[in-house]
Amino acid sequence: MNAVLVPPDWDGAPGWLVLPSPTTPESAVTAVDLVQRALDEASLLTDRPLPRALGLAAAGWRLGVRQLRAVMERLAGSGVTLVALCSDDAHSRVAAAAVGLSTCAPLAQGPAGDRPPGPANDPGLALQRGTLRAGDHLEVEGSVLVLGDVNPGACVRAGGHVLVWGRLRGTAHAGCRGDTEARIVALQLRPLQLRIADVVARGPEDSPPAGMAEQASLVHGVIRLDPAQPFWPLASTESAAAATG
């Protein structure tokens, strides 16, 4: 399987280089090899010039800073600038943001029309292992579970819930595409700012209750903090999915 080069939609827009899903985890072919192969092929087809700016669609690949740098160097060798990474892997997106790429999550999972629209088309839960530090910016399509802290200056945005197994001291935005049912749950909820859908609130200033997880939810258009309820907030979307499916 080779990478596919999708030309830009209009003049000045970036083209996309779509990597095939990795075949096996042990496969010797790396993402960098695939990009190089695509570049070699493109250089043979002289009638179609390479776009100046390119995004990389790498669903299923886990790319670190080093791999992304290597890809950027290869592309730069052919006069192409890498501008964006589209990946379903939160790790790769954090790495991409660290090297200055814009990031996005794949919109449709699997072939279009495969799944019905509505809550059953739940983009699922993204897992972020490790602390988000100042300047880190994580954005996911579905819900996100952070195993670690969200430090002051870091920002986490999710279309669904934001769950932090640690201390939330940065900025969190749940339901960033307008889902007012979204919640923010953290073992210690002391954020700088909280957002749910389009409502903004400053974080509380008093010290947190000891040993109690808290949640923020939208009640009559106002963000309210409560002790976290003893059930997994994702269960609600799953049961909704079960009901419609």
Binding site: V65, A98, A134, G135, N151, G153
Partner: peptide, 15 residues
């Protein structure tokens, strides 16, 4: 402390 935190993030991503 905030700036140090940012730097630590960069150091982590560089391994």
């Amino acid at each position: 402390v905030r700036d140090a935190d940012r730097v630590i993030g960069l150091l982590n991503s560089e391994g």
